[in-house]
Simulated assay, not measured.
Amino acid sequence: MTDIARRPAGELEAAVLAALWAAHTPLTPPQVQQSLGGTLARTTVATILARLYDKGTVVRSRAGRAYAYTPAVEDEAALAARRMHSELEKGDDRSGVLARFVSRLSPDDEQVLRLLLSQPQPTPKGASPDTSHESGSPSRQGAPEPRRQQ
């Protein structure tokens, strides 16, 4: 075992994403490396970008012989929401997952969620204004309020 301390999981990915968000333009791995202060090896930066690409967190386009990367999400809130959706999609019991999630919200977060759910949602172009989920679950408007665990 080595004495070198490991970074917390996701710290490098977060730093790379922060560099891409700050750039407002596609960056190649050497450009990302430079924007991070040059402390990481180019291969490390390239590996992180490849992992982010595999996760769908960044998109890439050809820039000469290399790739230039752009975030696929606009900010940290969108990234967190994407992760939450990903976790929700993994299970078969969506209602159970959502109920447990909501039961552990702080009162302030619960209030924010209630406010967000009460606001009308825009209908995507070409879609019918039906608010029910594809699985046939009731719309938010008629759904009972979730119970909070004490």
Results as ranks from 00 to 15, higher is better:
Asp108Phe: 13
Lys55Ser: 13
Asp54Val: 07
Leu98Glu: 13
Arg104His: 11
Val16Met: 02
Ala63Asp: 06
Thr131Lys: 07
Glu76Met: 08
Leu115Gly: 09
Ala80Tyr: 12
Glu110Cys: 11
Arg82Ala: 04
Pro138Tyr: 05
Ala63Glu: 04
Leu52Ile: 02
Glu13Val: 02
Ala9Phe: 06
Thr70Cys: 01
Ala15Gly: 10
Ala81Arg: 14
Arg94Lys: 12
Glu13Gln: 09
Ala78Val: 03
Leu27His: 00
Arg140Trp: 11
Pro144Ser: 07
Gly136Lys: 02
Val97Cys: 07
Gly91Lys: 08
Ala18Pro: 09
Leu113Arg: 05
Val58Gly: 00
His85Trp: 15
Ile48Pro: 02
Leu27Asp: 00
Ala72Lys: 01
Glu89Tyr: 15
Gln111Ser: 10
Leu88Thr: 00
Ser86Phe: 10
Leu88His: 02
Pro129Val: 06
Tyr53Ile: 08
Pro138Ile: 04
Thr57Arg: 06
Ala5Asn: 13
Leu12Met: 14
Arg7Met: 14
Leu116Pro: 01
Arg62Ile: 03
Ala99Gln: 15
Ser61Leu: 14
Glu11Pro: 01
Gly37Phe: 04
Lys125Thr: 12
Gln33Trp: 03
Pro107Lys: 03
Gln31Ser: 02
Gly91Met: 07
Arg100Glu: 15
Ala9Cys: 08
Lys55His: 14
Leu12Asn: 10
Gln31Leu: 04
Ser128Asp: 08
Val16Phe: 02
Thr39Pro: 05
Ser132Phe: 12
Gln31Glu: 08
Leu98Arg: 12
Leu27Ser: 00
Ser86Cys: 13
Thr2Phe: 12
Pro71Trp: 01
Gly56Ser: 04
Thr44Ser: 11
Pro30Ala: 04
Val32Glu: 01
Glu74Met: 12
Ala19Val: 04
Val102Phe: 08
Tyr53Trp: 15
Gln121Thr: 15
Thr28Ser: 01
Val58Ala: 02
Ala50Lys: 07
Ala81Lys: 14
